[in-house]
Each structure stands twice: as C-alpha cells, then as structure tokens.
Amino acid sequence: MAGDAILETNGLTKEFRGFVAVRNVDLRVERGTIHALIGPNGAGKTTVFNLLTKFLQPTSGRILYNGQDITRIKPADVARLGIVRSFQISAVFPHLTVLENVRVALQRPLGNSFHFWESESRLNRLNGRAEELLEDVGLSGYAGHLAVELPYGRKRALEIATTLALDPDMMLLDEPMAGMGHEDIGRIAELIRRVAAKRTILMVEHNLSVVADLSDRITVLARGEILAEGSYAEVSRDARVMEAYMGTGHA
C-alpha cells in the first residue's frame, strides 16, 4: 500500500538570483505518516517548507496535493485545502488572548469574518470548542492571558492548538522543538504523536532524537538536494549523510 501519497513534488527547484537553494527535489509524503526533513544548516529545509506552503513561488517543478496540482495557488488557499504550517519562530498572535488565538482559527469557517457590523460576542459560541482545544494541549488555565505572556514552550503548544483548530489533513511543522527546554520537548513530542494519529505530518527538526523517536520516514537534504531517504536506521547508516553532517569523509 505504498501508493497513497498525500503530498508530492516533482523537480522542485528554487533559485534566488542565481543561487540555487533547492534543486530538483522529488519529495513524496505518504498519508498518515510522520515524515521528517533533516539536513545541515543551509540545506534548504525551510525553503522547501516555504515552497510547499506557497510562501515562496518555485522557479520550476510541480507540487501535487492529493493528486491536485497546487503549484500556482496562493498561500491562504493552501491552508484552505487542509495543509497548515507552523513557523520556526513560534507563530502566535502576541496581543490577543490565548482563547482569541485559537478562536481566530475557528472563526474562518463561520463565514462572518468580513462582518464589521456584528458584535464580536457572536464569536463566543466558539469558546467551548476553543477551550477544548486548549485543554488538549494543556493550556486550560491560560485562556484569558495574552499570548505574549506565555513561556516559550506554551506558545508552541498554543500554536499547535491553533493549527488543530483548522482540523488540517496535513501539518507542516518547522522546527517544533527549536529553543525548547527538556521537559517541553517531551510534552510537545507526545502531543505531535497524538495529533498525528489522524493526520499526516511533515516536519523540519534538528533534534535527532526527536526525529528518531517520531518519524516514520526521513528525507535528508544537503545543499538543496535530496541526499538520502528512508527510515531513521537506514539514513543514519548512510555514509553520505554522515559526511554531510560531520563535514569529512572520515567520520
């Protein structure tokens, strides 16, 4: 049953004024898996993410989501199709409350987001669902706080709750563990594993033990190209991968 790819790229390439950041990437993410994208600094991982979510337009190549060509659509529409991304720097709305952060995501499907003549109390019917989502990520006591007041790990949890509010089929997580303390890492990893039960996850992550722990499949990027792909056991034995990480052939 290897045939069911949710997201696929063919020959994905991005050039910045002659510098090729991503070259000919053929990526294939299978439905229901946790797929990790790893590689040394500057390998083009975040660029790939920005291409997949259309925050950047590829120079050439195609992106297929559920078999549909999404190469030319806009980033907001990527989200509407069910691919929701996170960002390297935790993406919350700092001066909205924790509850409002989640509610903004829940609000869009209501179709009243242009209604400037209605009271925002119309949104209160979403509070129940928002509180459920907050409870899911362990933030129930924080609903009335401003997001900016949360410690870093909790901001990450809030970001995940906001993403889950859209009930996406696919989540793209850009370094979900970046800058986190030890106990937060365990908690967020558990959360990712839990939400992955019904979803596909593609993540960029530097923390290799997290990658080893969570991922079903790993793609290694180096200098904008795919270097190796496989399970953690497979790629960690690959000589080219070791060279890319260690910088010498003698490692």
């Binding site: 979510t53 925050f55 806009k74 980033p75 907001a76 529409d77 989200a79 509407r80 929701v84 991304r85 996170s86 960002f87 993406a91 919350v92 709305f93 700092p94 001066h95 909205l96 409002e100 509610r103 903004v104 995501a105 609000q107 869009r108 209501l110 009243n112 987001s113 242009f114 209604h115 400037f116 003549w117 209605e118 009271s119 925002e120 119309r122 949104l123 906001t162 859209l166």
Partner: peptide
C-alpha cells in the same frame, strides 16, 4: 463596532502576525 467585530478580530490577527493569519487560510 468594526474594531469589536468578527472582522476586527481578523484585522488584529493580521496586525499581530500576518504570515500566521495567511497560514490559517485568511486572504489577508
């Protein structure tokens, strides 16, 4: 009224973090 409306909520979200609002599917 505008500031305290569903529309106003989205505007504040855009002010706070536009890329995030886009990634939630808002055509900002």
């Amino acid at each position: 009224r505008t500031v305290h409306s569903p529309f106003g909520q989205v505007l504040k979200a855009i002010r706070e973090n536009e890329p995030r609002a886009i990634s939630l599917g808002y055509r900002t």
